[in-house]
Computed example of a mutant assay.
Amino acid sequence: MIRVLLVDDDPLVRSGLRLILKGAPDVKVVAEAADGAEVAALVTDHSPDIVLMDIRMRGMSGLAATEALRARPAPPEVLVLTTFNTDEHVLRALRAGASGFVLKDTPPQEIVAAVRKVAAGEPVLSPAVTQQLIAQVSEGTGGGRETRAERARAQLALLGDREREVAVAVGQGKTNAEIATELYMSVPTVKTHVSRILAKLALGNRVQMALVVYEAGAAL
């Protein structure tokens, strides 16, 4: 059973999400919050596997709540809820360790599928969204952008040649099966490489790995 915490300041949105997830036999909504400030205590009390988190809320934002959650030991996965897939806050949430995001107008079956994917350790980013993230990273200007690019290139330099190939493929939005086919290795070997890369670069998930690749310019 996948345990879910719903976080949104709109009671109608929470009600709709609760009904959608109630129809999935392997998903259970264990608690709800209307403010990011409530999240930490609810996570402690209910031990959810997934937090379905709205970004823009009155009170403590979902962004701040995500950053606080992901700083905890063994945190639940965070799946961001947003209205616009170009929201600049989404990129910051992904950098903080969110495993992906779903739009609020996503069809019900796709929301359930997204929850299942995140629970299985897979990021939820469509190819179109991946391209938008690349564009957002590339359009940054000034010293901050240069510093991030230099830091990302230094991180990738820590990897072996094969690990770098896997990291770049992850950054291009490819699945483990696609990477295995492209690089002539087994899926378990790809998974092993991904785990080693995450450990070497001190990253929380594949989305953060993809962002490092984008910032280094290696996926372009």
Rank of each mutant, 00 (worst) to 15 (best):
L94W: 03
A202P: 03
V7Y: 07
A113V: 03
E77C: 11
V29T: 08
S126V: 06
G160K: 03
G143T: 12
R58N: 13
M60P: 01
A65G: 10
R162Y: 06
Y214G: 00
L220C: 04
I2E: 05
T86M: 11
R162F: 09
A74M: 06
T141G: 01
K191A: 08
L5E: 01
V190D: 01
T106N: 04
P107R: 14
L158V: 06
D8G: 05
P107Y: 07
G23K: 12
L159V: 05
V90T: 15
L211W: 04
A128R: 12
N85A: 13
K191W: 00
R92S: 07
T82F: 13
A93K: 07
Q208K: 09
T147F: 06
E122R: 15
A33Q: 05
A98Y: 09
A96H: 09
Q136G: 01
R162L: 09
E122L: 15
Q132P: 03
V13S: 14
E67K: 14
P127G: 03
N205A: 01
K174I: 01
L63N: 05
Q132L: 15
E165Q: 15
K117T: 13
K28T: 15
L91F: 11
L6E: 06
G97W: 12
K22T: 03
G23R: 10
N176T: 07
V166G: 00
Q109M: 07
V90Y: 07
V212Y: 00
V29M: 13
G59L: 03
V129N: 06
M53E: 06
A114R: 02
D54G: 10
L52Y: 11
A157D: 11
L201I: 06
I197P: 04
L94F: 09
Y184S: 12
V90D: 08
R3G: 05
D54W: 02
V13F: 03
L5F: 00
R162K: 12
Q208D: 12
Q109E: 14
M60N: 04
P73L: 08
